[in-house]
Design a protein around this nucleic acid. Sequence first.
DNA 1: CCTACCGATCGGTAGG
DNA 2: CCTACCGATCGGTAGG
Lengths: 203, 203
Amino acid sequence: MTKSEKLKKGEATRLVVEDAALELYMDQGYHATSMRQIADKAGLALGGIYNHFKSKEEIFEAIIIDKHPYKKILPIVLAVETENLEGFLSNAMQVVIEELGSEPYYMKLMLIELIEFNGKHGSTLLKFIAPEILPVFERLVKSRKDLRVTNPAMLMRSFFGMILSYFLTGMLMSGSILEKLLPKNPADIYVDIMLHGILKSEA
Amino acid sequence: MTKSEKLKKGEATRLVVEDAALELYMDQGYHATSMRQIADKAGLALGGIYNHFKSKEEIFEAIIIDKHPYKKILPIVLAVETENLEGFLSNAMQVVIEELGSEPYYMKLMLIELIEFNGKHGSTLLKFIAPEILPVFERLVKSRKDLRVTNPAMLMRSFFGMILSYFLTGMLMSGSILEKLLPKNPADIYVDIMLHGILKSEA
DNA sequence: CCTACCGATCGGTAGG
DNA sequence: CCTACCGATCGGTAGG
């Protein structure tokens, strides 16, 4: 009763396999990861995996759904109390960056999907998530007059694009000479750029 | 004399192999692409490849250097004539987007490096390119007072981050329901956001 | 859930 | 530059 909660043995093993696979996918990619590696890391025999998943690809598909962070993040974002639009956008971005954390695992999963599956899961990610999140941006656009970007889909695209950009440039520059030249608070600056742009003056 | 220019037979074959590999990497990723596929596409036998490259990985390494678009793009950007800063940044971004084209192959190569090699080529890309490009941003920061971002490395990061974001969100959304909801000129809007942000008002 | 196995394919090489 | 081959490893399965 201590730790088991309600999940049956079978379901627990399934999650163990998913966790093992996720970790391996994250630092090798999908095709470079073998079923034997996953089995080893999950602590069972190769054949055992096939009691829970029909194929290697099915593990990946399960992960991109089960591990999706939006269920966790969206409520937090919506719960943030702010009086004005700037405060909301700023806090929202900061919360997302914080929650995705220093190891943006889901960002990597999305890229694996894009690179190794050529986006063939139809950006499953976006397809069943957009309907949940788009309305937030629609409300934003409707209720506020001081937005430069008035198309909800475009606003959403640029919002997530900004977060994508933040993590990706961070990953690309990590360990490079450039990293030391950066200010210590790149996330804050990113938020600032999203809100006000690179320039000080108005168009 | 018509088409051969100066490159010897050996060098030409090498390039044929690189082109074949590049194409395959781009829509399958690195590990999912076999040497036999590359050989077939290049029009020679498997063993023939090893006269030009020691290993599969060496082909990848050759590509990320030989196919790097910055040699082509940088001169164009610098040649753009503009009277003010806004014009320069705006044109620069537009030129880069245009040159990278609708199939941003090099963007994909960078992601493959990040995902499948875990960035182990030390972001070769950035390491020998940053010294070429960073000075451009240094000059920009020095000569202009109307920049919100005054750290050259940060300015460079956000500039390329913006381009990264543009292409990646485009790829992620392609084919999705969201795509139809977007305005027809997303690139222009992206430029506008980079320069002035999402908000109309000043901080 | 494991053992033992399958055919297929992998990267790479020898030898010409 | 090709043919023919190597050992290793792959995803997956049968049978218990």
